[in-house]
């Protein structure tokens, strides 16, 4: 082997080692970055869900408003039932109507106190078609809320869960 060929081999070998080291450094650096950015995107998803929760907490179809005056963080149990009935009877129409306001979201309200054996109430769910792969965007945003029962005239302690959905 000639001297020039040996020198070229050495240079190429050194270059390969340098590039490998750089790539390894990049992989480690971006692995850490990826986790941080994913966490931040998750939090921003929650920010969006928190904004949506405010929209839900102000929907006249759901809130308790005696004499047209809105009560702070208070849902009307009978309105929730009526809303569920509406969604069940006209799924397509209601989905289309509320999509503009809420988008792809799941809204659940759960009564915490007094304890009840009833399951949490799913007020609204608009995810994607069954065949689409669906993932939740961030953890559900949880907002304490009153549930007013007009039959018993009692306020229960409840929690509103809002989860956003996105296509995978």
């Amino acid at each position: 082997m000639k001297k020039a060929q040996l020198e070229m081999g050495e240079t190429i070998f050194a270059l390969i080692i340098i590039i490998l080291l750089i790539m390894m450094g990049l992989i480690f650096a971006f692995r850490g970055e990826k986790a941080t950015i994913e966490e931040k995107v998750d939090t921003l998803g929650n920010l969006d869900a928190a904004a949506l929760a405010q929209v839900v907490a102000n929907l006249p179809e759901l809130i308790y408003s005696p004499g047209s005056v809105k009560q702070q963080s208070s849902f009307d149990k009978s309105k929730i039932q009526a809303f569920q009935k509406l969604i069940d009877e006209y799924p397509e129409l209601s989905r289309e109507y509320y999509f503009d306001k809420l988008g792809n979201v799941e809204i659940i309200i759960e009564q915490i106190y007094p304890e009840t054996e009833a399951e949490p109430i799913e007020i609204y769910l608009n995810d994607f078609d069954v065949n689409d792969v669906v993932m939740s965007f961030g953890t559900p945003v949880k907002i304490p809320t009153s549930i007013y029962d007009p039959v018993t005239n009692q306020y229960a302690f409840g929690v509103l869960y809002v989860t956003r959905y996105v296509r995978k």
């Binding site: 939090t43 921003l44 929650n46 928190a50 963080s73 907002i143 304490p144 809320t145 009153s146 302690f157």
Partner: peptide
Amino acid sequence: GIDQFKTYANSELSMSFIEVFLDTS
């Protein structure tokens, strides 16, 4: 955005919790 969200979420959570707790029958 994240800092704003955290401040909002934690303040909203504690304030809503108290309001709803005081109203509970």
